[in-house]
Design a protein around this nucleic acid. Structure first.
Lengths: 376, 376
DNA sequence: TTAGGTTAGTGAACCGGTTTACCGGCTCAC
DNA sequence: GTGAGCCGGTAAACCGGTTCACTAACCTAA
């Protein structure tokens, strides 16, 4: 197997022109080529182990069958277990892209101060379309791609302009489900250990939190809405301050399951029992939620569905299937998962459930994109 | 920004030939082009927002600056938390590849029954070299790539033939460290809940286990070497059988940290205390190890280092830096991490350590490749 | 004066495919 | 007899770069 065989080799060996060989091997020109010639070409190609050169093909076809995935690699390497959600999302994107005949090509986000030439590197023709995972607010890359008319889907982010493509969780439904659940249990004093300010979803969830409380006639206490800043001293102090007052919250929403782990630790140190003294809920329904003790009540996002939806949006946009009739955005529904970390204030949890209770929370459906909402 | 500017556009706009434009923009031909012309070309390129077309460039240069990563996507999606190790590995590979100016292109493994034409798809010129993560034994893709003289590095696998490129953990050192630690604590009856038979490393670790016991004059009891088959009924029965006999092991090696979680559960059900009644050790030092209670004694592999090493091996092979003087393989060292799940048989663990104790276990170094062994 | 060297640059081939436009020969209907 | 239409197929342009071989003009040394 010395040298790769080219189309010209095949054509020569079959005694036909390159054109004919190309047509036969691509199953085109059905009408114009005799069965016998087809056979000859096919045989020659097989004998020579011919495989079209993907790069050359990409050049003429002006599409590479490659889907660019832009994500922040560095944090992945540093704190893997923080990122179960992102990993699931990524895997789902890979899977779906390959199902649809595209290979995912990984890119990092450009540095914030990247000049235009660095940005244009993304648009060098290697990737037909892009998916950006957790794009920063005001993402320059996203704008650039849009200016170049290259389809780009933002995941876990919402842009405002009309032609934007994005997929996001239904943050509001998630918060509503959690607050609703706690309110039904009788909680009135609910705090929110929300996300670090740089995360784009923080604003949406905090707004939803305020709204949910207000709708139920519960007071919104601003000093009970604090950011979770990873497992730092600062977070620890916040928790202490929050939980040590005589007039303290009886229930606590956390930014995500992993943060709930830190709350568990703090509660143990402060001699607060969960859920009798403090009900705790998470977000994401990752592995952490099931191995914490007591098992965590949380809300399940659908990273698989979102990943699929993102790929479909991107590829549909490529094939001009995006018209007014087709969705440009998808809001992924959310499910409440009730476990043992919540109970009426002051009372222990109900006897352990045979299994987690999953409550389907009706989500707004802004999208008709099947992948975004089907199954699960 | 209507149409991408081509090199011809730049040349025309600068009043020079394509050749000159190309030379200037690639910083070549220093000697042959006047400073003034260079300026004109640079200005024209900037004005037109020119960026070379990556695909066209790849075609002529005959290299794409893309590194193919082959991995099993599907299981990732299904059981993310089982796969922390693989995820870390993947992330490290992405990172390192991008550091070296390559973009990682993701592929799935071909189906086992894939014909030659399916296999040739990988070698379509899109990727310059490949990294195969957890390749199956007798991997046909690996053989194919080798036949085509395309560099391919196997990660977590060892091939026998002389020109093979691979990176693997030092399984033997890991097992030696664990058995050594247990033996020092006074354990004589040690069992091994090993990996599912399809995993390639099982044989190496089991052999190392037998050897480690024998070297220390401890008996090898074959009925105490059993596979961990995920959290199935079967695994549960195995554990019951193992731990319920009157003459039962006092210490148990597990396949990886996640499996230790199941052992903890079983022990709790059988009223065995850890570590007093049963010392348990894991493998990998993943997140599970730290959140289990008691925290798990385990052995740390170095997925980051391995990922980096794999990329370096692949890219060095590409640039012909592989000669007799350069490494073709790397064995990644392993560290023992002592936590609270091990103690002398019958006695509780020492008072909780201020932090985990990390013991550097001297690993065989078969490689001079810096990335494989540096730091950590 | 002329051979030889340097400077600054160019035309055209090439990478490996796809696609457009066209062609010769045959049949058929009018 | 001839124009239209189909059948089976081809030559050549093209995609957007890179690179080889070559040259015009000017300079220098013998």
């Amino acid at each position: 197997m010395k040298q790769r065989a080219t189309l010209a080799d095949v054509a020569r060996s079959a005694g036909v022109s390159k054109t004919t060989a190309s047509l036969v091997l691509n199953g085109k020109g059905e009408a114009n080529i005799s069965e016998e010639t087809r056979q000859r070409v096919a045989t020659a190609a097989a004998a020579l182990h011919f495989r079209p050169h993907g790069v050359a093909r990409a050049l003429t076809r002006r599409r590479a069958d490659v889907l660019g995935i832009v994500c922040a690699i560095d944090p992945f390497v540093e704190q893997v277990h923080h990122h179960e959600f992102e990993h699931t999302l990524l895997s789902a994107i890979f899977s779906r892209a390959m199902e649809r005949g595209y290979n995912p090509l990984i890119y990092n986000y450009p540095p914030l101060d990247a000049g235009p030439e660095r940005l244009l590197r993304y648009a060098d023709g290697r990737s037909d379309a892009f998916i950006l995972i957790f794009p920063p607010a005001e993402c320059i890359l996203l704008k650039r791609l849009h200016a170049l008319a290259i389809p780009a889907v933002a995941v876990m982010s919402r842009e405002t302009h009309a032609e934007a493509l994005w997929v996001d969780s239904d943050h509001e439904a998630g918060i509503q489900a959690l607050v609703g659940h706690l309110a039904e249990l009788g909680h009135q004093k609910i705090a929110y250990l929300t996300g670090p300010p740089e995360e784009e979803a923080v604003a949406a969830r905090v707004a939803a939190f305020r709204k949910a409380l207000t709708e139920r006639g519960l007071p919104v206490r601003e000093e009970w809405i604090e950011p979770y800043l990873w497992d730092t001293e600062e977070t620890h102090n916040t928790l202490k301050r929050l939980l040590c007052q005589p007039d303290r919250p009886t229930a606590l929403l956390t930014w995500y399951d992993f943060a709930a782990g830190d709350v568990y630790l703090a509660a143990r140190q402060l001699n607060l029992r969960i859920p009798e003294d403090l009900s705790v809920v998470g977000f994401d329904d990752t592995h952490s939620a099931t191995i914490l003790s007591p098992a965590l009540t949380t809300v399940r996002q659908d990273p698989e569905g979102m990943g699929r939806a993102a790929v479909d949006l991107a590829l549909n946009a490529l094939s001009w299937e995006v018209t007014t009739s087709h969705a440009r955005t998808a809001v992924s529904p959310i499910q409440l998962v009730v476990r043992d970390s919540t109970s009426p204030p002051g009372r222990p949890a109900e006897p352990a459930m045979p299994t987690s209770v999953v409550v389907q929370w009706t989500a707004r459906q802004e999208s008709d994109l099947s992948s975004g909402v089907e199954e699960h």
